[in-house]
């Protein structure tokens, strides 16, 4: 197992996720932030030890099977058995264990040193509620996407109020479970700007497979500006079609579950849609983010993402769906 190169072409053409990413976007082997960068050398060290031992055992078995008689006699001695079966494992494992403890201690220290930047992510069936706390202490809600300032330590509080989920962005850190009744805290630190993909790693029933999200790391200044914009109310419809979409949104009761800040839609059951148009995906990284995808999602989300808790709106005519799509796409 050599260190894998990106053997797969970056096609970016699947129906599932035409938008973001390429091979490596969710890979623990391409670390791009704090904890993941610390784990990487430990991983390769242990993988190297494993491969060396595997090679040794293979050679020994080959010698034992068909080697010269003298060599085979050596292999059947008691000291060989004690040396290879007891002393060698103790030496190698002690080394790995100490190395592992040191990385653990570094991780624990990093966790305790998290700064004032706090994001709360709540696992839902089957999406992510994301709440940022601005420096002024205001809460800004978003969903299914996490933005990070490069170079800053961000404390991510992980909650769940239904079943157990697990928050995992392989390029940035190891996973940490979201457990009802508990608050787990993860420190993320992006080392460079870029887009990464995360996914729920604890089986949470139903649409567990379609519970992913994107992490967008951006330069700190850009991040601050973005967060300021994110804290503002939604854009108002401009075109006639967008206005029609807004009216349909209200008429169909979408506001019972979704919030659009600055409007009367204040529902809390589903994702906040205030700036949904600016996100990289909809349906927790299930569809790309454009007007057509919104229309599809509204009409047949039960096919796109079975068992998800939003009802499908098949009663809407194609032009109505188009109008709704245009409205939602506008909410950047």
């Amino acid at each position: 197992m050599a260190r894998p190169a990106r053997v797969l072409a970056c096609t970016c053409s699947s129906a599932m996720l035409p938008l973001a990413g390429c091979a490596g976007i969710q890979s623990a082997l391409v670390p791009k932030g704090g904890e993941a960068l610390d784990i990487d050398p430990l991983f390769w060290t242990s993988a190297g030890v494993a491969m060396a031992v595997m090679a040794m055992v293979t050679i020994l078995v080959a010698v034992a099977l068909r080697g010269p008689v003298r060599w085979r006699q050596v292999l059947s001695r008691e000291w060989f058995l004690t040396g290879g079966g007891i002393v060698l494992p103790i030496v190698v494992l002690t080394f790995l264990l100490v190395y592992g403890f040191l990385v653990m201690q570094a991780g624990a220290t990093r966790m305790s040193a998290a700064g004032e930047h706090v994001v709360t992510v709540t696992g839902k069936r089957w999406w992510w509620r994301v709440v940022y706390r601005t420096p002024e202490g205001r809460e800004v809600e978003s969903a299914n996407e996490l933005r990070l300032p490069v170079g800053r330590k961000v404390m991510v509080r992980l909650l769940s109020d239904d079943v157990i989920h697990s928050f995992w962005v392989p390029q940035l850190a190891g996973k940490l479970d979201m457990i009802p009744g508990r608050i787990n805290v993860l420190t993320l630190e992006a080392a460079e700007p870029g887009i990464s993909r995360g996914q729920c790693a604890e089986y949470c029933g139903g649409a567990h497979a379609l519970m992913a999200f994107h992490v967008v790391a951006m330069p700190a200044a850009e991040y601050d500006a973005w967060l300021a914009r994110e804290a503002m109310p939604a854009r108002v419809p401009a075109s006639a079609e967008e206005e029609r979409g807004a009216a349909l949104f209200t008429a169909n009761g979408c506001g019972a579950c979704h919030t659009i800040a600055g409007t009367r839609a204040q529902g809390r059951l589903g994702p906040d849609l205030t700036h949904v148009g600016s996100r990289r995906s909809i349906g927790a990284a299930t569809l790309p983010n454009d007007a057509a995808a919104f229309a599809r999602w509204i009409a047949e989300n039960d096919h796109i993402k079975p068992e998800n808790l939003m009802p499908p709106y098949r009663n809407l005519a194609p032009d109505e769906l188009r109008a709704l799509g245009a409205f939602l796409d506008l909410l950047e």
Partner: peptide
Amino acid sequence: FALALVDSCLAGR
């Protein structure tokens, strides 16, 4: 000997 290398009650990473 884990005691010598790892803090006790911080969350394990």
